[in-house]
Amino acid sequence: MARTRYASDRGLTSRMLVTMFLLGLVYVVFVTAFFAIAPSWGVFALIGATVFLLAQYFFSDRMTLFAMHGKEVTPQEAPELHGVIDRICAMSDAPKPRVAIADTDVPNAFATGRNQKKAVVCVTTGLLRRLDPVELEGVLAHEMAHIAHKDVVVMTIASFLGVCAGLITRFGLEWGLWGGFSRRDGDQNTGLVLLAVVAVSAVAYTISFVLTRALSRYRELSADRAAALLTGRPSALAAALTKVSGEIARIPSKDLRAAEPFNAFFFAPAFTKGFSVASLFATHPPLDRRLAQLSKISESLSRGV
């Protein structure tokens, strides 16, 4: 990866490393327990999860753009957007990603791609209509920080255990509901083995899900901090966050439901009205926490710290 001028955060990095270590520990325990219970079943789940994650790794940019109806645009088609990206690249000494626009009124942005050569930054038409150039710069600097920090690779690796355990849990439950829980093969109670497999997989999935969401929240805070320090305008990023979060609340529920599956990619999560989720399972930190961090950065910059 080319080195950039995006600032690192040792505190957040250490928390991310601890989270990755815990995920690895859960993975080792899960694999050991699973193969001790039903070694032959694990091979199929491992192959399925590997194929899925390899596809996500190599084609995440195309898949996400296709799902969000994003279209790559040239400098002639979107000169102002490209101009902002060019300024951020000059400030960060980072290679320029591909630039795309998704035609939706949900104000948001996302970055994807397994490395800087394959990276793409996409903004929605709703975001372009609502933010001024300075606020847009803060949002795009945040998204490009994700690229510089290799967040797509990190989250793909981190989600491997959850995908594997989730597949086993789902197929195990479906098989069990079709009579697998009561099945016996000779002296072996296959139903009990299946039940044990589903239980172990469900526990592993739940723990990995919580840890992966925590990792996602840390990476959002890290991207906020890196963008604020790079641009020197944390207040602009805070204004964009406040504006986007407020505008999302006014978007029709139908449009928000269509966007919710991509919350992990977005600058700010798109939740339908009345949606409530515990912070433990959120992909993004609470708005207050993000604003508080930006406020501290603003104070530090004003004091010249």
Rank of each mutant, 00 (worst) to 15 (best):
M16W: 04
T156F: 04
K150S: 14
A259D: 03
F262W: 09
S235M: 13
L53Q: 13
P261R: 09
L12E: 02
I147S: 09
T283G: 00
G180Y: 00
H82Y: 07
L211W: 15
A49H: 01
H149F: 13
K273I: 10
V198G: 08
R184F: 09
V197I: 12
T112C: 04
L54M: 05
V153R: 13
L131D: 07
Q188D: 15
V244Q: 00
R3K: 11
L237V: 09
S253L: 07
A165L: 06
L81D: 03
T283V: 09
E247H: 09
E77S: 02
R87Y: 04
D288E: 13
T124N: 05
K118E: 08
A236W: 05
T272A: 08
P95C: 07
A111Q: 02
Y6L: 00
S302G: 07
L161H: 07
D288Q: 14
V153H: 06
K243D: 10
A282L: 08
F160Y: 15
L25R: 05
L287M: 06
S235E: 15
V193Y: 08
C89F: 04
L167Y: 13
R219I: 09
L241W: 00
P75R: 03
P133M: 00
F275T: 13
V51S: 01
S216F: 04
V200L: 15
T4W: 00
R10H: 11
A148V: 04
A240M: 05
A236D: 03
A165Y: 03
Q116L: 08
L25T: 12
V121Q: 03
F181A: 04
S216A: 12
V139M: 02
V244G: 04
V193A: 10
E260L: 09
I37D: 06
I85W: 00
L161S: 09
N263A: 02
K243V: 02
